[in-house]
């Protein structure tokens, strides 16, 4: 195992896990809580990365993160507007926005499909200057992403217990109840999607800083990957307090990255990774269903065998 998993592999898996955990948290909000499959996630991730990269290029790496989050809020607002005010079905609203975002993203990057940040400061290079002495010198990247994901995780879990947060949760939990109480479900969906997309875009921006580049196809398949992380987390950590669920989502994201790292380590070619991801998602999503099914078959066979035994006893008499 030690040869399979070197410390540096573990470290980069954790780093990526924390960065992508923000998208998983976004889907936790939109998919698990609001019960909406937000398919604009891919484009929004790239949007965050592109906006973040451009602001970083102009010399404001920290501001870049905030700018990316604001761009995410705008994207989420459009998706929400389409489904709450224009009668567009939620899946379609996401697909429409995702398609539109492709052009927006290219435009943000100055009509090029690629931007690199090698020549300028990023949050990581800034941190490296500050943290270059001591035992943590090699761990500064992980420290930064950990701090970001922990702060946002705590804020999210606190938020979901405020009255606004409770109203958002109720909106996804019981439509009838929400109609009968004084909650405006359209407003709650809008707030929820804006927040979720802010997290997605922020994740994109941090990833841009991490790999010092932004590519127009960066977000492809992001929604699948984040869903996989989300479900791995939910399956492993299960139910409990909001805090626990959120910790589970972050854990799921890190685990997913371990699985990918392991696959790469086993010489699975990089081109095959998308397929590996898809298989992981398919397995992860069907797992609860298959579990139920298999317990049904076990029960059925058990009952059948019981009858058979009974019959054979009757025959022998």
């Amino acid at each position: 195992m030690s040869t399979l998993f070197t410390l540096s592999i573990l470290q980069s898996a954790l780093e990526l896990g924390c960065i992508y955990a923000l998208v998983a948290l976004a889907l936790f909000l939109s998919f698990s809580i609001l019960n909406i499959a937000d398919l604009s996630t891919d484009g929004c991730f790239t949007l965050g990365c592109a906006v973040g990269a451009m602001v970083t290029l102009s010399g404001h790496p920290v501001l870049a993160l905030f700018a990316a989050a604001v761009a995410g809020v705008c994207s989420g607002f459009v998706t929400a507007f389409l489904q709450t005010r224009m009668g567009v079905p939620s899946i379609l609203a996401g697909i429409i926005v995702n398609t539109g975002l492709y052009t927006v993203n290219i435009a943000v990057m100055g009509f090029s499909s690629n931007v690199n940040l090698f020549a300028c400061d990023t949050i990581f290079s800034l941190a490296k200057e500050k943290l270059s002495y001591g035992w943590y010198a090699d761990w500064y990247k992980l420290l930064i992403v950990l701090v970001i994901v922990i702060i946002l995780g705590v804020i999210l879990s606190l938020f979901l217990n405020t009255r606004l947060g409770l109203s958002i949760r109720a909106t996804g939990d019981n439509e009838h109840m929400v109609r009968a109480s004084s909650i405006n479900p359209l407003f709650m969906i809008t707030v929820g999607l804006c927040l979720a997309n802010a997290l997605t875009a922020l994740s994109g921006a941090v990833l841009g800083h991490y790999q010092k580049s932004c590519d127009i196809n960066l977000g492809t398949g992001m929604v699948t990957i984040a869903l996989a992380s989300l479900i791995i987390g939910e399956t492993l950590v299960g139910k409990g307090s909001m805090f626990r669920k959120i910790a589970g989502v972050i854990l799921g994201s890190c685990l997913y990255r371990f699985i990918v790292a392991l696959a790469l380590r086993l010489n699975v070619p990089a081109e095959a990774l998308k397929l590996v991801s898809a298989v992981i998602v398919a397995v992860a999503i069907s797992f609860p269903y298959l579990k139920e099914k298999s317990s049904f078959y076990r029960q059925r066979n058990h009952n059948r065998n019981a009858y058979r035994e009974e019959e054979s006893v009757n025959v022998s008499h």
């Binding site: 217990n161 109720a170 939990d173 019981n174 009838h176």
Partner: peptide, 12 residues
């Protein structure tokens, strides 16, 4: 089942 949110606590 229509009047309450099942995944939220009584208090919530």
């Amino acid at each position: 089942l229509k009047g309450t949110a099942p995944h939220m606590t009584i208090e919530e």
